[in-house]
Design a protein around this nucleic acid. Structure first.
Length: 482
RNA sequence: GGCGGCAUGGCCAAGUGGCUAAGGCAGAGGACUGCAAAUCCUUUAUCCCCGGUUCGAAUCCGGGUGCCGCCUCCA
């Protein structure tokens, strides 16, 4: 049974999907006027992992992530760069994919863009107006928050209390200061589309309501995003969607991730304390970044600095080493069905137990931190198993090792997505490089057998300079890229 | 001003009533090794403070202190 924390009810609830075996899921994507920073990357990776786990659990996940490709920030940026706004947005969509792909984020089933859904948005605004929840003033359409009694139910805000303390700019044309724009008129030179209210473009919030309803239909399962979207963005999404369909709930479960902080302060564009994903990827490999993002529960804040990434890099390295050992041992061996005894049986059972514990952790509101801890524990058991004095690769052992490998691949690679992310950096050559490394290892082994330590160490040191790490084991020398 | 969150060993971080408070990083010692690396073993916490509830609390309640977030674009 999967439980998840629902922001709407402020408690963990059992996941009961609209349709058996299917999860319809929407995650707010970036406004594409710049490269994404680490704070943007967190929800992307977190919800990608939620999706992967649901799929591991046998659900078919219909996953939608939008791009906001027309908006004030894009228009301003385009002016600065003397560029067409739509083209600028498109450029950064491409850049987005480069970063997200690097972090091992699976593509959504749909990546809808605002500019491709203007008609849907206009239709929706019209319906909201027809239903009496919006009004037009001078080519501008506002949502009438006072007409929607449930307004504030997600963020637990009371309209009257908010009005008292808020520094909301007063626009005389609005009925209430909190009324928000559904459609705004375009100034000359700005991207604009024809509408019943004149040339203009959609307000920010309406797109997500329109596109999620279009692809996932009313009453879909999970809607995700950062904490800072609860108000006003998601509050407004609910108001728009339910004012349009006249049916609640628009969404069954609302999930929100905590912030990335720098020196305990929120990383944000307005504070200027942000780090671009690609800046970080210059210094750390993508699997480390992903591992770091999953090392804390998704609802907690996560502080960023290089030292923390280095810590995580060391931890991840440990898991990768164990996994590499499994691959080496299994190479060329065929698994047969045999009865397991003694240590083999015990280790096999420990692997089953680890899987159970991992699932238990992830079932409980996607506790990736605990799930990772389970991998560390089983990793230690596996190493102990292989380290046994009398260990040899018989049929029983092959079966056990194969089970270990399956565990690592399913939980670590498939669900958490933390393995094999740097594969792209290891540009495949003709195999010549591998051949030469093996050759040098061979020469070194000969030197070692003659106790020619100088030559042996020279080869090892020189290869280390190029990031090739040699490790001598009882089974011979193994190497890896560091 | 309104609303909300957090405070666990040197650092990061699970754990929301009950066996000896997970796991990672760092440190110390040891095993293994030609030396390393990798791996393993050993070792470091009365859970911000005060009061309360309870047979029993890191975990619930009240108060305090500190930090952070939302209320305006922000993942």
């Amino acid at each position: 049974m999967i439980k998840l924390y629902n922001t709407l009810t402020r408690r963990k609830e059992e996941l009961k999907t609209r349709e058996a075996g299917k999860v319809y899921m929407y995650v707010c994507g970036p406004t594409t006027y710049n490269y994404i920073h680490l704070g943007n990357a967190r929800p992307i990776v977190v919800f990608d992992t939620v999706r992967r786990y649901l799929e591991y659990r046998g659900y078919q996940v219909i996953y939608v992530q939008n791009f906001t490709d027309v908006d004030d920030k894009i228009i301003n940026r385009a002016k600065e760069e003397n560029m067409d706004a739509i083209k600028l947005a498109e450029k950064y969509i491409e850049e987005y994919f480069e970063d997200a792909d690097a972090l091992g984020v699976k593509r959504a089933d749909y990546h809808p863009r605002v500019t491709e859904h203007i008609d849907d948005i206009i239709d929706m605004i019209q319906t909201i107006m027809d239903n009496g929840y919006a009004y037009e003033v001078d080519g501008e359409v506002y949502f009438d928050v006072r007409s929607f009694p449930d307004y504030g139910k997600l963020s637990r805000r009371d309209l009257d209390e908010m009005r008292a303390g808020a520094r909301v700019e007063v626009d005389e044309r609005k009925k209430d200061p909190l009324d928000f724009v559904l459609w705004k008129p375009a100034k000359p030179g700005e991207p604009a589309w024809d509408s019943p209210w004149g040339k203009g473009r959609p307000g920010w919030h309406i797109e997500c309501s329109a596109m999620s309803l279009k692809y996932l239909f009313n009453g879909f399962d999970i809607h995700g995003g950062g904490y800072d979207l609860i108000f006003p963005h998601h509050e407004n999404e609910i108001a728009q969607a339910e004012a349009c369909t006249k049916e609640a709930p628009f969404v069954r479960y609302w999930m929100h991730n905590g912030f990335i902080t720098v020196n305990q302060e929120k990383m944000s564009k307005s504070l200027g304390n942000f780090f671009l994903v690609r800046e970080i990827l210059d210094k750390f490999s993508p699997d480390v970044v992903r591992f770091y993002l999953l090392s804390t529960h998704y609802r907690s804040p996560l502080d960023f600095d290089d030292q923390k990434l280095e810590m995580n890099a060391k931890g991840l390295e440990k898991l990768k080493n164990t996994r590499a050992r499994l691959w080496e041992l299994l190479k060329g061996n065929v698994v047969e069905d045999v009865v397991l005894e003694g240590e083999n049986r015990r280790t096999y059972q420990a692997v089953q137990e680890a899987r159970r514990k991992f699932e238990e952790a992830m079932d409980d509101d996607f506790n990736t931190a605990l799930g990772i801890a389970v991998l560390f524990e089983i990793s230690k058991e596996i190493n102990n198993y292989i380290n046994q004095r009398d260990f040899y690769l018989g049929k029983q052992q092959v079966k056990v090792i194969s089970e270990c490998q399956k565990l690592f691949d399913q939980l670590g690679k498939e669900v958490l997505g933390i393995f094999d992310l740097d594969a792209g950096n290891q540009v495949g050559d003709s195999g010549l490089e591998e051949f030469l490394i093996e050759l040098l290892i061979d020469v070194r082994q000969q030197a070692r057998s003659k106790k020619d330590w100088n030559t042996a160490d020279y080869i090892r040191d020189r290869l280390a300079e190029k990031g090739i790490i040699l490790e001598d084991t009882p089974q011979g020398c193994r190497w890896k890229r560091g």
